[in-house]
Design a protein around this nucleic acid. Structure first.
Lengths: 270, 270
DNA sequence: GATATTCCGTGCGCTGGCGTACATACAGTG
DNA sequence: CACTGTATGTACGCCAGCGCACGGAATATC
């Protein structure tokens, strides 16, 4: 009966409305996002005209479940978590989106609402576009469609893997994995992140995070104080994390490193 | 340290290769699948020509992770589970596909491989098409594209919800939910399903399933013997299951019943 | 510089589920 | 009918993580 997990509803602080403000690096920020960067020049620059640079602040909620999607976001230095809410007061991160992705996948699949909460987990830059305009651009650009559909698959795979990870692996391993994923998407070795917040991401109590973080700190893998987390030993963290980290990372790279063992077990006779 | 969960790898029995055999009801079987049934007559009948009716047998593996997708399947009376594998010997169901869906979503998103295992969980009919041919048809039919993209979103939402469910809810609730989902997709009140198998679906030990199933049986909600499970009291099962059941079901219907409470908490000032 | 708030550390009893092992019961095969 | 495999029941110790609660420390506020 693990019903009441963490009482305060997962919105950390910072109210709902337009905390996003106009950012500076309009043109330069765009190439921060790898999906946009991969577009051919022509479609890229047309799209750029409709994109509005914004600064997302920590704790901001971009989408709420069953709520209409207003904008599509291409994160630059910002970081967005997808959270499944359950029983009204429990949260679990199912996806993490950074410069390698886009927030607003339901739109490209023909749905106007998101089924999860999209929460800004790392402040930073992003480019956004109003939903209707985006859909128009989406229709016009084959490259954009291909990019986004392929990313959608990556996201699905990530969600699936995360599901199993959350079921089977220890908090300590999952914490390490989560820190690595964040570290990959932020440029700095340091980021702000309280134990309470991490508890919402991992779907565990704050104390559970504290215990796990202590172990990692004792091993000199990280250092933290009042929400400022510093990655000290990346390699060590990778050892401490579960395999899921590498699995998900390699999906992004499209490496598809097929373990030879598995390949052999599958007969090719058709 | 719940590493070694269930030793026998999740493939129940029945070997890999073409256990699928030619089915009879070619034309009649097609409308069993609601995605196909929703297509306009014209595109529907063209597609039908390329679809091959097959009978899927219990335990058959349609896709293996990182393996090339050969066919797309539109289940009729059959039932297919998507399983995430982890650490080589653990499995967890993340999606359940019946007559309301399609197996082969990665293809429509531009990927040639699946990231999960697709396992036939309920024997029955299906229509299938070879991958290359399907992609050609897919390009030609806007309605088909729309249908499938929308279904993809539904599947993503289902996976996300399942992820949280597996993290937070008790085995008993999840078992009830799972039986309901199966019951929805099969016509009969009875289906074959051992505790061992259910353990793989729910990501728990066989014994865990036995304990949970006992409780449900004592409450006269189900009856079972040597793998034959009978649903006795559907309403009771719904009570015993977690909310996730209704959440996922309503997504399929597109009901999107917005809880008024949540709606209010979201300020509409823009 | 006193106070409030946020963040982190610690302790304690509890329990759901794990790993393991063995016992029973039914079903098919010969 | 005996035999063998499959499916389910039972038991026991163990532990990760839970809910709860309080203490201490650092930062912000006035």
């Amino acid at each position: 009966m693990n019903e009441k997990l963490h009482n305060p509803p997962p919105a950390p602080r910072a109210g709902r409305p337009a905390a996003c403000s106009q950012g500076a690096g309009a043109r330069s920020a765009s190439i921060e996002n790898s999906l946009l960067a991969a577009l051919p020049r022509k479609e890229y620059s047309r799209l750029l005209g409709g994109l509005e640079p914004v600064t997302l602040s920590f704790g901001e909620v971009l989408y709420e479940p069953e709520e209409r999607i207003r904008h599509v976001y291409f994160p630059g230095s910002s970081l967005v978590s997808l959270l499944t809410l359950v029983d009204g007061h429990l949260a679990l991160e199912v996806g993490l989106i950074g410069r390698d992705g886009v927030v607003g996948v339901p739109l490209i699949l023909g749905h106007k609402e998101s089924s999860v909460r999209a929460l800004v987990q790392g402040a930073g830059t992003a480019l956004r576009m109003e939903a209707a305009q985006f859909l128009a651009e989406f229709k016009l650009s084959p490259s954009l469609r291909q990019e986004l559909y392929r990313y959608t698959h990556t996201l699905m795979a990530q969600i699936s893997q995360t599901a199993a990870c959350n079921r089977f692996h220890l908090v300590e391993e999952r914490l390490a994995r989560w820190l690595l994923m964040t570290h990959d998407r932020v440029k700095s070795d340091q980021f702000h992140m309280t134990h309470e917040f991490l508890g919402h991401m991992l779907g565990v109590r704050r104390v559970g995070v504290t215990k796990a973080a202590q172990v990692l700190q004792e091993r000199k893998l990280i250092r933290y104080s009042r929400g400022d987390i510093t990655v000290l030993d990346r390699g060590g963290l990778e050892t401490a994390a579960c395999q899921c980290y590498e699995v998900v990372r390699d999906m992004h790279d499209g490496v598809q490193s097929v373990p030879a063992a598995r390949k052999a077990e599958v007969s090719e006779a058709a």
